[in-house]
Design a binder for these strands. Structure first.
Lengths: 238, 238
DNA sequence: CGCCATTTTGAAGGTTTTCAATGTCAGTGG
DNA sequence: CCACTGACATTGAAAACCTTCAAAATGGCG
């Protein structure tokens, strides 16, 4: 009886990986179909709701995660409560990197979230047996590093106007990458999140969005949705 | 005659890798001694002088580099000439990552520099045959990513005083890592470089250094050398 | 010793923040 | 159905911090 239940569960898990919508742009895309059955078994699916923490910085790093649906913000805090959002993550993104076995940032769900959860040790031994994954992860991490480096320029050298423009461009491109319509664009995060991402205050975000609206470059449909009138101007201002 | 010369050259190359001073903290440390002979052959040594460019952003990415002696700054430029220094690199550091076959930043020697040069394609096929290197590079890149993320906090949320302090702490720790005396500390880079690294101006760097001097936290021996009087205060201010 | 690049110092100015008040919107209960 | 509530966003005015511009000082190197 119980065996049957387990078998059923395993069947479902196997189906999960093979039917996964984000596999084509996830790190696991490098695995052949015949590896998926076993690969499915080393991960589980988990749901989170808006504002729920997936893990906290400095906690013992037990798992890796891959987003299958929804968005995540990863952030760091200073002692006095100042926050810097390191990044907004999208379906297909991999996260949970650690240093000396501790997570190096906190992760929180934005809206409803579905993730694949991998035990770090299990995934690491799986990688040892399937070195193609190591190369895929190296390439993906290298790419993330270039994104992080681009963000240094944004945070260090751009003024408020340029920062907001680069953010809107970024969102638009991000949606293209995962094949979503990139106009109009909904912002899953709050104004405060955008401010904490760009190293600005919520008031400055508000004023810069208004400026773009007044210049007719964007149309603000609601606080969480906007329409790009002039793609060219938006890109050139970047 | 020519064969003898080539043989001698090969012997030298082999010796180079085995006697390398930075191997214990370079990506190649994961290779067994018996792999070094061949590994030596896929790289060459190259020298650069102060301010010499190793490569430029957007150039075709032909090589990877590993520093054996000296320092490198990697940076990005905006159209209008604004510069952001992405990082200062030290002996043992690996660089030359690319995106779509183009370097994602420019690299310039600070002072005299010695590097190991690897052809990107050669190293990549070597990695395919020696997957342990892929894992090592993944781990190292992950670590660099955490450093890049820490810098987002520095660039986005710290004020000028905190930025300079974090920089001095950083330099001090960096030197510890490669086993150099970490007091007094020589700064290979100029004030302008520090400014471009922290997203500040040279004048602000100057004023903040003076403030730390006046508070007796550091002693400025020369523009390129300083002494930390109060490690605790410097760390706590961070 | 003198030159030139780099750094330091001072004063004015600008951009972004801070503080405070008002506005908007979705959800809730009368 | 509408007023109420609370979270989030916008707007305005003053203040702070860092930059900009200008000039003087330092220091390395021929």
């Amino acid at each position: 009886m119980e065996n049957k239940l387990i078998q059923k569960k395993l069947d479902n898990i196997e189906v999960r990986c093979q039917k996964c919508k984000v596999r084509s742009y996830s790190f696991c895309r490098c695995l052949n179909e015949d590896k998926l059955e076993y690969f499915s078994k080393i991960s589980t699916e988990k749901h989170f709701i808006n504002k729920e923490n997936i893990f906290l910085q400095h906690e013992e790093a037990l798992n890796f995660y891959n987003i299958t649906e929804g968005n995540v913000k990863i952030y760091q805090l200073l002692d006095d409560g100042r926050i810097q959002i390191i990044g907004f993550l999208y379906p297909g993104d991999f996260f949970g990197t650690s240093n000396q076995n501790k997570y190096t940032y906190s992760a929180e769900a934005i809206g409803n979230l579905k993730v694949c959860v991998f035990n770090q040790k299990s995934l690491e031994s799986y990688i040892d047996e399937n070195p193609i994954l190591a190369k895929e992860l190296f390439n993906q991490t290298s790419y993330e590093l270039t994104l992080a480096q681009d963000r240094m320029m944004i945070l260090g050298k751009l003024n408020a106007t340029e920062k907001v423009i680069s953010f809107l461009n970024n969102i638009s491109n991000q949606r293209k990458r995962i094949g979503w319509p990139n106009n109009p664009i909904s912002l899953p995060m709050t104004r405060q999140d955008i401010a904490d991402y760009l190293g600005l205050t919520i008031e400055t975000i508000s004023r810069e969005m208004k400026k773009l609206k007044d210049e007719k470059i964007i149309k603000i449909l609601s606080t969480k949705q906007f329409y790009i009138n002039d793609f060219e101007k938006l890109h050139n201002l970047n």
